[in-house]
């Protein structure tokens, strides 16, 4: 009954000649929320980058299937069109490109790839307004250059706003909760929950319990030195909180 959305098998990936992922196996069913925890430098962001196709990483072994497709054969934009979204640990600034133009181009590129005509301007603006409200972003942000001059928390909120706009099937949140104040964390958590549905899955990478308390994950993994060394339920979060990563 549980159909598999994402299947990672024996994934090895390197940057230059440094092997970072050393045999990752991970299966995510449709509708599931998985948490990935692990010490600094374990390879969590690398895993997210490999899933989204960042060119600096080379997959040397293993496979990734997303909804039955060979993900590794797809370009980053094709993965986005297929429904993958990553909230960046360190969102990138794009000087000279407004959030509105950025999102319009993103949405219409996908529509074009699918043979659908561009979204009507009025519909697009309505969608922008609705999704900005969801993460309580002030309307003036629509005109601002993407992430330029944003505070750390504003950048993270902008990531969740983009996620809301693009409506992904698989959302990967790479430390979206880091650097958020308590209220912003609540807003982001509510946003993530509101966007979740039985057809959609999420991978939540975090160092903190707080976000996971709001968005209860179905499965918790521990990634250490490029491998998943433990998988279980919410009890793992408590174990990490009490005893750290040494035990794994």
């Amino acid at each position: 009954m549980n159909d598999i959305l994402l299947e990672i098998k024996d994934l090895h990936a390197s940057a230059g000649d440094k092997e970072i992922l050393r045999g990752v196996n991970l299966e995510i069913g449709r509708g599931e929320i998985h948490a990935v925890m692990g010490p600094n430098g374990a390879g969590k962001s690398t895993l997210s980058s490999v899933l989204t196709g960042k060119p600096e990483y080379t997959v040397t072994q293993g496979s990734i299937e997303f909804m039955g497709q060979d993900l590794l054969a797809m370009k980053p934009e094709e993965r986005a069109w297929a429904g993958i979204f990553m909230s960046f640990q360190y969102p990138i600034e794009i000087p000279g490109v407004s959030i509105t133009n950025f999102m319009k181009t993103a949405i219409n590129s996908k529509r074009k790839a699918q043979g659908i005509e561009p979204m009507k301007a009025a519909d697009f603006l309505r969608l922008m307004k609705e999704k900005m409200a969801l993460v309580q972003m002030k309307p003036e942000f629509a005109k601002r250059e993407v992430n330029v001059g944003f505070s750390g928390g504003e950048k993270k909120r902008n990531e969740i706003f983009q996620m809301a706009m693009l409506d992904p099937t698989l959302a990967i949140l790479d430390e979206t909760d880091s650097g958020l104040d308590v209220d912003a964390l609540k807003i982001v958590a509510d946003g993530v929950k509101a966007l979740h549905s039985p057809e959609k899955s999420a991978i939540i990478i975090t160092h903190y319990q707080k976000l996971l308390e709001y968005v209860r994950p179905d499965v918790v993994h521990v990634l250490k030195a490029g491998r998943i060394v433990a998988t279980g339920g919410y009890e793992i979060v408590d174990k990490i909180e009490n005893e750290g990563f040494e035990q794994f």
Partner: peptide, 23 residues
């Protein structure tokens, strides 16, 4: 980095380059 960020949002490689050049 900007290039990958845009592509990861579904903006094709060429279009992302054009956006960078225009800006």
């Amino acid at each position: 980095d900007a290039q990958f960020y845009m592509e990861s949002r579904g903006i094709p490689e060429d279009e992302a380059k054009v956006l960078q050049m225009i800006s």
